[in-house]
Write a protein that binds this DNA or RNA. Sequence first.
DNA 1: TTGAAAGCGCTAACAT
DNA 2: ATGTTAGCGCTTTCAA
Lengths: 332, 332
Amino acid sequence: MAQLRDVAKEAGVSMAVASRVLNGDETVRVTSETKARVLKAAQALAYQPNHRARALRLSRTGAIAMVVPSASNMIFADIYAGVRDVCVGRGLSIFLCQIQRPAVPERQLVDLVGAGQVDAVLLQRSDLFDDDQLAALVSVGIPVLLVNSSLPGHQGSLALDDAAAVAMAVEHLRGLGHQRLALIGGLATHDAAARRRVAFDDLVHGDPSVVEEAGWEATDGSVAMRRLLSSPVRPTGVITASANAALGALHAAQEAGLRVPDDISIVAIHDTWVCAFTTPGITCVAMPLTQLGRTAATLLLDCLDGATLPNSTLTDPPPRLVVRGSTAPPSA
Amino acid sequence: MAQLRDVAKEAGVSMAVASRVLNGDETVRVTSETKARVLKAAQALAYQPNHRARALRLSRTGAIAMVVPSASNMIFADIYAGVRDVCVGRGLSIFLCQIQRPAVPERQLVDLVGAGQVDAVLLQRSDLFDDDQLAALVSVGIPVLLVNSSLPGHQGSLALDDAAAVAMAVEHLRGLGHQRLALIGGLATHDAAARRRVAFDDLVHGDPSVVEEAGWEATDGSVAMRRLLSSPVRPTGVITASANAALGALHAAQEAGLRVPDDISIVAIHDTWVCAFTTPGITCVAMPLTQLGRTAATLLLDCLDGATLPNSTLTDPPPRLVVRGSTAPPSA
DNA sequence: TTGAAAGCGCTAACAT
DNA sequence: ATGTTAGCGCTTTCAA
């Protein structure tokens, strides 16, 4: 593999010149002829700058880590798409690092970033972290942006507009005439889940309503729905805090012999392609996940260029209601 | 951040000694007392070896790239789990690189690996690559293992036992009494898809049967199923080459007013959690994806230690039939 | 048993 | 307008 030295020799210039030309350094003036010679030499030798040497010299690896609780959650894929958009544009690569439980993985992240393998981290919190564990994770010397999660005292987070999403779901159900609403929410430890719950409580204040605390997965949604169905005042409209949970909830309702949406309506927060392929399709409040990824990555990269990480909320574009077959006016 | 130099100074030894001790170099004899001093110093200073310097010196980055056509395909998550298992164990990290279409991305991979950012590549082929494009991709100076895909003339591939999976699906359907079978297969360009199709053709030889060529996604499955339903001799049992396509097929059948499994049976190759949450649940032939990931990663890492990459097929564990509600004896 | 020193391939400050 | 040179932080041969 050709090195800079070879290119320089081939072009009959010093390594310094070759380096500057190849890096498009504008501040240095070179004969357009020498420049051409260098470029041609590089081309001829198929020169690829050695990434490792560059990283050492510049103290930059050109990679960021994306830490997620679960790579199989489709939320991840959508966020990744956004992150990828901006990283590809800026020539960065992305490490994927799945961290679900704290104990060992805490070391993982420190090993990873402490070792200087990545320049910055984009972290999506797992339900299983409590604040202290998260704090340990983010206390590494490089920028860490919390995606759709926050940590008291930590600088750098980007949240979704959970309240708006919940409001949209509640409004949709109320508009159809539903009076008794339920929320199948996330675990209280997860702050996006907490925000959604607070929003829900505020909106249904006074009405008969019930909240189930559940995980993000389909089984969690099933279990919660079964509990809901056996409650004294059965809700007619159910909001789930994740698309996965909605699948579980739909399944449990159908298994219990209910017809959806005739007997019970279901609306999910988050939209994934699967929601369009169930029978009935699941009505969703789609959140701008890809944009979340894009904004998050941009924030992080700007930070590497000297900007400060903000604690902010992504409100534009707003959540979007996607009406499918799982919601209808209550039958009674 | 403390460096080796600091540790050495703190321990009152030279960098050379510190380095050897810290790396557990057995070939060098040091007073157990000096050794302890070094270890203590490292501990005290919370020394983390600089990954970039190490990578340059050793010409190794301690990372592999995982190239996939789509991070949102649940197949990916399962394979990743296996890869992760073995990489975490050996202290490696994993780059995720989504490459769907050839043109630009071809540069991506070369940039990535030509630059020496990773030590090896695990590549899952996209339908959209033809052999030439794939060949261009894999002709980089480091080991590339093709996962569930192969390329004539390329050394290094690990396939699944597609024929066994198809046989299992056909047998299941035949055992239930189905005579008219259909395959909703993958694109012919994808060699795993091709293998499945050949296996199917062999098995149904002589019987009335029909093959639809479709992509891996749910919509592809829908479209194919609609074509199937309007064909003169409608099949009673349908095999889809992916779990995603099965979702689409199921949806299309239900939308057309058919009852599954009463009017038509569906069995998918590959199992994902979603298949357990549709109504009815989808009968699947589960493939050992996580093991595929594990084996693939092991092969690759062994290769870095000097072994040769084989072209092999993962036959153990064999595919496993998971019977759910989408299959039953034909009604007529 | 330990230390000195030469690079890995590149960039950038400082000459010329 | 171009060249010299000093490292980035580490490993490892070779010498003491």
